[in-house]
Design a binder for these strands. Structure first.
Length: 638
RNA sequence: GCCGAUGUAGCUCAGCCGGUAGAGCAACUGAUUCGUAAUCAGUAGGUCAGCGGUUCAAUUCCGCUCAUCGGCUCCA
């Protein structure tokens, strides 16, 4: 074998015999780091540590703690899980098992699913496999060879995957460890012994290849990390998000309920939830009026013929509710646009009138499938902060930019970070290529003009036009789609909207559908989780609660209470015959921003002692000063 | 809609191999009048999600329905 030169990660060069493996190279270079290296890159291409080197190359290592390394580790864990499952259960087929953003899974065909006990068994078998320290071995074979190999083993899903590979695929790679063989691109970790910290989380159904027409497989989710601390931290994060779950907080803070008797996906707002919603909606109205929107209101039901005219009946009938009135069929609105069309058509419009911006806090009903309902996030009746902007094609860019500014402002007010996506034409869509091109360009140009970074979401647009989605990120880095801007050239067509141009001729306007917060219900759900129920003062349903030390302080506390209420402070009282500590504890759990303690000192001085939610005591202050403080926070949206 | 799990007091939960149910908190009553995260005692509270079946007997076993939870698919 010839001598080869290897450029090491630190830039130094080493000479070795050709045929040496990556693992051996690293072992001779830095044996001290070998334990934390999961794979390597040869000339920037990821490879296994067992990969032999035959010529001069540059070598990089992939650390177990890196994002890439963790992905490889987890992917290997999924193979080990598959091995464990195959060993424990008979008549089971493996399908597909990748790593994900924060863990891994593997899909199996297994009748009846996995129980918790099964998962425990699988997990302990995995630990045995890890401890046995089997090497991961790669073998490149022809596709035909692989097909017959998996056919022989009765693995029809693998055969299907192989058959779907392109004709000119050449060889495919197989990986085996401890007698378990899998089709896999790799790379994998060197030996199963590197697997130390993992946990299987849950089992769930998943369609083969993500298509609901296919068979449902059984998926087991797990996660793994480089260290125990990282796993503990992750599990801690899951616990934390459970505490912040808006369904739980909604109950605890008495904001809303979902009621089995009332029906699924239907929110019943309690008083405090209603106050929160009202605050948000008032803010919305004010902000929209400032930006030249005209408030309008449409009816809840409109004749079916109108939904046919708009195209909704053809496309979304299955998700709509219908009712009959005096022999006439009506559709319950799933969107607010129709009435807005009719409002536009009630008058002749000059180019001087454009753009018109119709805004409605429109309540819509959509028949969502039962399995998708989820607290406030996915419901069957919700209210959108919906607007339709009808303008000339030339005005499109400025309008989109203005909406982007509006979204940026709103996200800042509520404390969210967000990402932007541009979704292009889907397979099932209507309209000419020309108009799609025009609309997609308009959206993209506006984002570029505003220097907003965005990702293209190919084929994910609405059926009538492309859209910009704003995905906000909450404090736990989970993404939620709220704001969206959708370009529509179909509805103006179908409703024959027009404006009179400078030339005195009729022209076709274009239309934008857009929401800022999206569905108020969903936004509230996100907001509740984002703040963990501890809302800032301006949003808090209850801003302060008066806590008396003993019964003799009640008359003074009552006087303070009416002062606060008169000043518009959202105050409550707790005059019960309980110890102060007890009342504070309760107010704390209700996450009320200010607890106002009233005892002898306060009565004598004619003042109050506010205690902040975080435990900080503000000392004795005048009632007027406290009112000013609350007002200040409300105007500053703090 | 699909796969799996779950449904017991207002809330959180216990209840073994079938013999009609228990705890803590909350509520109510009484005592206590108390200074920054739980005062003590007592009382009351349940068609064990609903319907049907098996059984001498069902909260418990079986079936169906409804709802919820975790996913998958979907989200105009």
């Amino acid at each position: 074998m010839k001598e080869i030169k290897i450029t090491l990660p630190d830039g130094s060069k080493a000479s070795h015999q050709g045929g040496i493996t990556v693992h051996e190279v690293i072992a001779s270079w830095r044996p001290d780091i070998l334990f934390s290296i999961v794979a390597a890159k040869v000339n920037h291409v990821p490879v296994d540590l067992s990969h032999p080197l035959g010529e001069d190359v540059s070598l990089d290592v992939i650390d177990i703690e890196s994002r890439e390394g963790l992905g490889i580790l987890r992917h290997s864990m999924s193979h080990v899980m598959a091995q464990a499952v195959k060993e424990i259960f008979k008549d089971i087929q493996v399908a597909i098992g990748p790593s994900t953003e924060d863990g891994f899974y593997y899909d199996f065909e297994h009748n009846g699913g996995f129980t918790l006990e099964d998962i425990e068994k699988i997990e302990s078998r995995m630990r045995e496999i890890a401890a046995a320290d089997y090497p991961f071995q790669r073998k490149d074979v022809s596709r035909d060879e692989a097909v017959s190999l998996f056919k022989e083993r009765g693995e029809s899903y693998k055969v299907e995957l192989l058959n779907d590979l392109p004709e000119d695929v050449g060889t495919v790679s197989l990986y085996s460890q401890g007698g378990y063989l899998d089709l896999c691109r790799g790379p994998h970790i060197y030996r199963t012994g590197m697997i130390k910290t993992f946990k299987l989380l849950n089992a769930a159904g998943a369609y083969w290849r993500g298509n609901e027409k296919n068979k449902m497989l059984q998926r087991i989710y797990g996660t793994g990390f480089a260290t125990e601390e990282a796993l503990a931290e992750y599990l801690q994060l899951i616990e934390e998000s459970k505490k912040r779950d808006h369904r739980r907080l909604g109950k605890e803070l008495d904001l809303f309920q979902m009621n089995e008797e009332a029906g699924p996906g239907l929110v019943i707002f309690h008083h405090k939830g209603t106050v929160l919603r009202e605050i948000i909606e008032e803010w919305e109205k004010k902000e929209h009026l400032k930006r030249g929107y005209k408030m309008v209101m449409g009816p809840q039901i409109l004749k079916v013929d109108l939904w046919k005219k708009s195209g909704h009946f053809d496309h979304y009938r299955d998700n709509m509710y219908f009712t009959e009135v005096e022999g006439q069929s009506y559709g319950v609105k799933p969107m607010n646009c129709l009435a807005h069309m009719l409002i536009y058509k009630a008058n002749i419009h000059s180019y001087r009138d454009l753009p018109v911006r119709y805004f409605e806090l429109g309540t819509v009903m959509r028949h969502e499938k039962t399995g998708v309902l989820h607290g406030l996030m996915r419901v069957r009746q919700f209210t959108q902060d919906d607007a339709h902007i009808i303008c000339t094609p030339e005005q499109l860019n400025a309008e989109i930019r203005a909406i982007a500014d509006f979204v940026a402002y709103a996200m800042d007010v509520f404390g969210f970070d967000y990402e932007v996506e541009l979704s292009t034409r889907p397979k099932k869509s209507i309209g000419s290529d020309e108009s799609w091109e025009m609309a997609t360009t308009a959206l993209g140009e506006a984002l570029k003009d505003k220097d907003i970074a965005y990702e293209i979401n190919e084929g994910d647009g609405a059926f009538y036009g492309p859209k910009i989605d704003f995905k906000l990120k909450d404090i736990l880095k989970r993404k939620w789609q709220c704001a969206t801007i959708q370009c529509d050239f179909t509805l103006p067509e179908r409703f024959d909207l027009s404006y009179i141009g400078v030339d005195g001729q009729k022209h076709r306007p274009v239309m934008l559908h857009r929401v800022i917060l999206g569905a108020i219900e969903r936004f509230m759900g996100v907001l509740i989780e984002h703040y963990g129920g501890a809302f800032p003062v301006w949003l808090s349903p209850v801003q302060g609660i008066l806590l008396t030390v003993t019964d003799r302080h009640i008359p003074y506390a009552e006087a303070v209470y009416s002062q606060l209420i008169d000043a518009g402070v959202r105050a409550e009282t707790d005059f019960r015959n309980e110890k102060l500590g007890y009342k504070i504890r309760e107010a704390q759990m209700m996450k009320i921003p200010y607890m106002l303690v009233i005892g002898d000192r306060e009565v004598e001085s004619g003042q109050i002692s506010p205690r902040e939610r975080n435990g900080k005591n503000l000392g004795i202050v005048g009632v007027g000063d406290f009112i000013d403080l609350i007002r200040e926070k409300c105007t500053q949206l703090k």
